[in-house]
């Protein structure tokens, strides 16, 4: 049995490959098979390959692109798709465990499909360490599948520390109180060479741009230290923090969910505590 895997060079792809091996001998289609990126064309290539090889399943990483291409494949083939699986067992039906709510909830489900289509949630399955699978021979695609394609690329304009790659993030929530209140957050971030983050309440209030938002519908982060100031810790926010190594919560409410689920906590008024930390750092220099 052959299983088709949509792959790029990322770890997420190798994790998807590991899960795919349960469904057969993998053969890969490269995310770069069509340049520039054209998701309908990739879906067409996957569909053709799956039919040609009578594939048992088609699997991709649950990245933005992986989910997008697989949804197009599912629509094209008229099959169900289980997105962001953390486990799957072949069978009739296939059983899957998949993420909901950005990983705050898990769903056990039966996938009734002659050809299971699945994406694998990043960082939930150990990466495959075996040799890369053979690549499927790619046939030319129809013009109609190239209508949706990348025609240009715009580089980001801000020169600050990127949230997704920051080693340290100082993040503010509703407790910061105002747009101006972020001055003390920025000051501490500056001293630590950190990125500034925020919760959804803050972007909804217009205090910070959405590019600063950490969470399920913002950026998912993986810093060494995440300092959460005046953030209660709704599931929406926590979904973005799963990769953080150490979390320090500063909040006046010791019972706030984030105060209980952090590694370190400081109770009290962030407007006093944050400047005091900045002062302490300066003092020791």
């Amino acid at each position: 049995m052959t299983v088709i895997v949509l792959m790029d060079s990322s770890d997420a792809s190798k994790q998807a490959l590991a899960l795919a091996r349960k469904f057969g001998e993998p053969q890969s289609v490269s995310m770069d098979a069509v340049q520039p990126f054209a998701p309908d064309a990739l879906a067409a290539i996957l569909a053709q390959a799956a039919d040609d090889m009578n594939a048992s399943a088609v699997v991709a990483a649950g990245t933005e692109r992986g989910n997008e291409v697989m949804a197009r494949l599912a629509a094209r083939m008229g099959l169900p798709l289980a997105a962001n699986c953390i486990d799957a067992e072949p069978g009739d039906p296939t059983t899957v465990t998949r993420q909901r709510w950005g990983g705050s909830l898990l769903e056990e489900a039966r996938l009734h499909s002659p050809r299971p289509l699945m994406t694998v949630a990043p960082h939930t399955v150990a990466a495959d360490s075996g040799p890369p699978p053979a690549e499927v021979e790619v046939k030319p695609v129809a013009e109609t599948d190239l209508v949706v394609r990348v025609v240009d690329h715009v580089s980001p304009s801000n020169g600050g520390v990127s949230l997704a790659e920051a080693k340290v993030i100082v993040s503010g929530g509703r407790g910061v109180g105002s747009k101006e209140g972020f001055a003390i957050i920025e000051e501490l971030a500056g001293l630590l060479g950190a990125a500034v983050g925020c919760s959804r309440a803050v972007t909804s209030a217009g205090w910070r741009p959405h590019t600063d938002q950490v969470g399920q519908t913002g950026t998912k982060v993986a810093p060494e230290v995440y300092i959460a100031c005046g953030i209660s810790g709704a599931t929406q926010h926590m979904a973005g923090l799963k990769g953080a190594k150490r979390i320090l919560a500063i909040n006046s409410d010791p019972q706030a969910p984030l105060m209980l689920n952090a590694d370190y906590s400081v109770t009290g008024d962030l407007k006093e505590i944050v400047p005091a930390i900045s002062a302490e750092i300066r003092k020791r220099r």
Binding site: L248, A249, Y264, V266, T267, G268, I273, A276, A279, E280
Partner: peptide
């Protein structure tokens, strides 16, 4: 995770 308290108020700054 079970948070370790580093103290309360600005007095916690050295521990942070």
């Amino acid at each position: 995770r079970r948070a370790e308290s580093l103290g309360a108020g600005s007095a916690a700054a050295p521990a942070v």
